[in-house]
């Protein structure tokens, strides 16, 4: 892996993470993280569409008139999302049924548009694909972590399996949207207050 590639990958996973540093894709972070299973499928869908959209935008970047670049990006993103949705329905109907409207909502995920605007418009297709993939993974690990705690505390289960017995009083708020606000805020607080601060300080020296 070249240093450029590894730089892109690691910054998307960590110090430029789309969720807790760029604060993008928050709507889906709130919506899908109450059950791990849904979160994983959402994450896979997002990784797939971010990578493909980034790649396509980058391929066309020299031809796209600047004034309509948002329209073009939206068209590309929407097309990929619809294709992903159709493929899910055809190949894994059970999962597609559980996800319901979530897959279509990937279109509105700001991470995809953000990466297309900020990265794919200026870079070659190869590295844009890597950027899309790693942004998707950066989004995914944060969501899965949040989902793990929300499902555990809200339903007493992990991946639908009961782990906390009947002694556990389920925190219904964890399953609802406010629970996501709390979890995400606590997560951002820990990461920015503890981990990233030290890095910034050491960079400054």
């Amino acid at each position: 892996m070249s240093s450029r590639t590894s730089n892109v990958v690691f910054s998307n996973l960590g110090r430029d993470n789309p969720v807790f540093v760029q604060i993008l894709g928050i709507c889906s972070t709130l919506a899908v993280t109450n059950v791990l299973k849904n979160t994983l499928v959402m994450a896979i869908g997002l990784i797939f569409t971010t990578a493909l959209s980034n790649f396509t935008v980058s391929l066309l970047r020299r031809f796209i008139p600047t004034r309509i670049r948002m329209m073009v990006s939206t068209l590309i993103i929407a097309s990929w999302v619809i294709i992903v949705e159709i493929m899910l329905k055809a190949q894994v109907p059970e999962i597609a049924r559980q996800l319901g409207p979530y897959v279509g909502l990937i279109i509105t995920n700001c991470i995809i548009m953000g990466r297309a605007e900020a990265f794919a418009m200026q870079n070659t297709p190869g590295i844009s694909l890597v950027d899309g993939l790693s942004s998707g993974v950066g989004y995914s690990w944060v969501l899965l972590l949040i989902a793990f705690f929300r499902e555990l505390m809200g339903s007493g289960t992990v991946w639908g399996q009961v782990v906390l017995g009947s002694w556990w009083v389920k925190w219904s708020i964890m399953v609802m949207a406010p629970g996501a606000f709390f979890m995400l805020a606590i997560f951002i607080w820990i990461v920015k207050g503890r981990i990233l601060v030290e890095k910034e300080a050491s960079n400054g020296r």
């Binding site: 066309l60 590309i76 159709i86």
Partner: peptide
Amino acid sequence: VFMALLSAVFIGAVSTVH
């Protein structure tokens, strides 16, 4: 023209998959 052509291409692709 660019937008129209691109739309046609993507609509075509989505329709084919459908």
